[in-house]
Amino acid sequence: MSLIIKDLHARVKDGATILNGINLEIPKGEVHAIMGPNGSGKSTLSKVLCGHPDYEVISGSAELDGQDLFAMSVDERSRAGLFLAFQYPVEVPGVTNANFMRAALQARMPKGEELDAVSFYKEMRSKMKSLDMDPRFTARAVNEGFSGGEKKRNDILQMMMLNPSYAILDETDSGLDVDALKIVSEGVNAMRAPFRSFVIITHYKRLLDYIKPDVVHVLYKGKIVRTAGYELVAQIEQQGFDFIKSEE
């Protein structure tokens, strides 16, 4: 069971082509890191996989545990087990975090079954505590007026509540201070399991020091140009991406 991406070409709707033939396989139980210079297509890849309407697939395929990902709507992809922690989590005025999560969990329940409100709040509060979040955030509008770090934590909280099979973390470390980074990383590490995979998109080694990846990929000009173990992170930290750019 894997997330398999084959020869994926995608572009901004009616605009420039960003992904130029991505091939990736993310088996269950593994943590993969995707690194690459600015503008190489890392965030585009995550948005295309989740079905963002600003992008369109030109060709190629993506399978999630054998299901055609691109045949599914955005919400179906989520219910099938895909999760994206956003680089810039969106503010949704008027919709409280609790109502949002209740709706998301209710959408996963069989028809006719109702989510138990008491156990829902209990679970949400317990997960918030583990992320050092103020329990009053349940009643606040989704990400409205949150600091950058609070938004990122809120995304990780959503991931913990929804229990996805494949989680893509798009620059989750940006905007987090050292203490928050540690808390968020501990939350992710606690979720590592043989039935779940993570794709971690980042520019920096420091996140990967906390969440050790099994495989590291480098994305450049819309293609995976290098795949190796954790040692690649150290090499990029020392030499930057220049050695890859010169080879391409």
Partner: peptide
């Protein structure tokens, strides 16, 4: 954002309108 968490588009629109 809401649909990416599994909420259908119709329900997401309803959540936003109600909010």
């Amino acid at each position: 954002y809401l649909t990416s968490r599994g909420v259908s588009r119709a329900n997401a629109q309803e959540l936003i309108s109600t909010g």
